[in-house]
Design a protein around this nucleic acid. Sequence first.
RNA 1: GGGCGAGUAGCUCAGCGGGAGAGCAUCCGGCUUACAUCCGGAAGGCCAGAGGUUCGAUCCCUCUCUCGCCCACCA
Length: 873
Amino acid sequence: MLPPRYDPSEVEPRVLARWEKADPWRCDPHSRKPPYSIVIPPPNITGRLHLGHNLVYTLHDLLIRYKRMDGYEACWFPGTDHAGIATQNVVERALAREGLTRQAVGREEFERRVWAWKEKYGNEIVDQLKVLGCSCDWSRQRFTLDPGLSRAVTLAFVRLHREGLIYRGEYMVHWCPRCGTALSDVEVEHEEADGHLYFIRYPLEEGGHVTVATTRPETMLGDTGVAVNPHDERHRGLIGRMALLPLLGRRLPIVGAREVDPAFGTGVLKITPGHDPVDREIGKRHTLPTMDVLNPDGTINDHGGPFAGLDRFAAREEIVKRLKAEGLLEKVVPYRHAVGHCQRCRTRVEPKISTQWFVRMTPLAEPAIQAVRSGRIQFVPDRWAKVYFDWLEGIRDWCVSRQLWWGHRIPAWYGPDGEAFIALDEAEARTLAGERYGREVPLRQDEDVLDTWFSSALWPFSVMGWPEKTVELRVFYPTSVLVTAFDILFFWVARMAMMGLHFMEEVPFREVLITPFIVDERGQKMSRSRGNMIDALEVKESHGMDALRFTMAQSSTKGREIRFSQRQLDEARNFENKLWNMARFILTNTEDLPVGGSLEGRLLSVEDRWLLSRLSGLVDKVRTELDRYNFHLATDALYHVVWHELCDWYLELAKLRLQGGDREERITCQLVLREALDLVVRLLHPIMPFLTEEIWGHMGEKGSLSRAAYPEPCPEWRDLEAEGQLGRLMDLIREVRAVRAEVGVLAGAEVDLVLVAGGEELARAFAPAIQRLARAASVRHEPGARPPHGAARGVAGEIAFFLPVGELVDWEAVRARTRRDLEKARAELGKLETRLANPQFREKAAPDVVSKAEEEAQALRARCARLERYLAD
RNA sequence: GGGCGAGUAGCUCAGCGGGAGAGCAUCCGGCUUACAUCCGGAAGGCCAGAGGUUCGAUCCCUCUCUCGCCCACCA
């Protein structure tokens, strides 16, 4: 006997253990089934599962379970990401708690510690994925720093380099002073911030001055020129003259540059080629020297003269103070502008000239653009394609080197003269060096590592064993679908597309499903710093993982954000319990059913036919909506049919037949119940795997439900006649209940029901059901009978009835209710009639729309007539 | 400065060319032996605003307003 309350904390671990043991998701590339594959967006080893993960992984799992059940060889490749900066930061923080820094312990020790950290915590996230129910093929789990995947990374780098798509050079990059590394463009987040615009006087060599405006006065230490727009009447004459850098006295040539906006500030721009991309361009054109004034940690270096050693912000203050003292600070005005921050640590980044490795993106981007344009990759919703195009079309080269210690070491070795040898390993580099120098020379490997996203870009094929020609690659590449939030569209999705097309000459996935973004109940982005992250495991504790998964599926609309809602979660938990009790009811009431019974050839009652018809519709609906990634519509349909049709109506009706009725009828009913349970459990399994698997076990089934077949469409069950008849029955019962409630008949009291017009077939076929569900003492059909004094009346569709309740009736309530109903019906009828009276409507509207309107109008006229007669009494 | 999304019942949100819906909250009534995480009933909406297309618009088009997000080297 099942307990009356579903307890996920008891069931889920048990189901999990069963899965762990049976390993039901190991896939076989040699099977003849059509392949369906997904590679996991690898979670960071630093991660803990939050709702964002939960959404993405739930949807992946939902799809893979659906396809697996539906006859595909469905393979989900799991794994984790070393997550360069993120992980390094976490371990550095741990070191800091010991009073250490990575520099203090040294690179080797640091790497050892990160690995140790990974061994200790890296599997936590994997365990969490399992707890979530992810049906991955765990035998294929990979890590981006695994030897195989590292080889793939090295090979990709070497190949790109030989193809001229990777180069090294001195360019302006975003620099995070806290992380001490260069960043790519996408790792910089721009945020509006209140700052100041400083107007500074630069003396002219021959007397007088010009005033420049800047938001970063400290960068003046690196100024090597001044520029004005050559078309600017006011300043044109300055070109070719010399200004003097305040505080340092450096001579600054004044040049003309069209980039200078005469309308901004004073129309005079100070040129700092070491710390501003526009200045860099202008500087290059006019052969102004480039001067880097920042140390890697953001302090001023020796070029800063008296300010050397100060932090950039301290230097700013100091410089402003000195300028003011010397009368060179004309004014300071408040100024709001966007400033770049390090995605990982929120530190303000600095543009800084530096020598880095870059991937040439334009040649890689072109095929990736074409792949989407031609439809070989499809975005869902497709509006994301535009965002993708916009980014790729304006793409700039990708800075891939990072001054970090945790990651794939760049496979470049330098000779004594600084010549770089790019090779798969040191031996190969040595050979290359030997060819150049003609002798053994000492080589030094590049200290830097690659952007963590470089390995991620290769993930869809590196997890399948690339560069080997594996059977997995042959069968499962390209993958079927990728599910992700939009925040890694550029970081990951676009780069996978480019690398997949380049190295595999084929897209990495056919569809990209972009999910909404989860925000908290107040609509705020969830983030660690806000402290509003919701831990999936805590939700699991309180509501069960299936409830969370159900909520995720239900929330997964085509909108842009999902507002997390506790109530919705409660609702899902209630649904869990409902399902549990539905199963409990069906199982206990079918215990005596002989196994192997079949509905085949049995005489079905109207409600049986109605239920099967509804379930047939449900199967179609769920399949259609899942195929379209409309998870919320599939979920809503399941919720509604299971709860409000199967449970509220069929189960209630079934009770009659299970108690009384003849034996054959009871068996039929039991068979229908089992059929319904079987179907519902299969349909729901991808969404609520734990609960359904548990019920499946109680149904006496062997093996995992996850390997059972997904319900096929069953058009032979469609029965509109039964649906119509049950619809009328439900209307009548509802109306009787409503009248009773309105009129104040005690819920427990049984009163007679007299149908005075219409409904004879219902009364004949369903009298016991009506008695039970509408709490009627008896059901009589007496056409034209006059209600006695003190009878409550009602009209359900075309059926008129009364309840002789005598003194119980609140007469005012009855009349008020009838009047209201009549008004409503009349208004509705009025609208319909004007529409029908319009010749253009009859002419242009679809025929079925017209006939439907006519039918409705007729029904409404009948209803009005009945209501009017009641009122007239 | 570009681009995108959202504005529907008190709240959270579905629906998106021919009936304005769900859950929660509210009110009324129920321990009807699967479930009180339940059952029955009720109340609640110029579907942001203004134009347009259409026989017909919450749904399509244009504009406006209000929020939110993404992208962008104006110092």
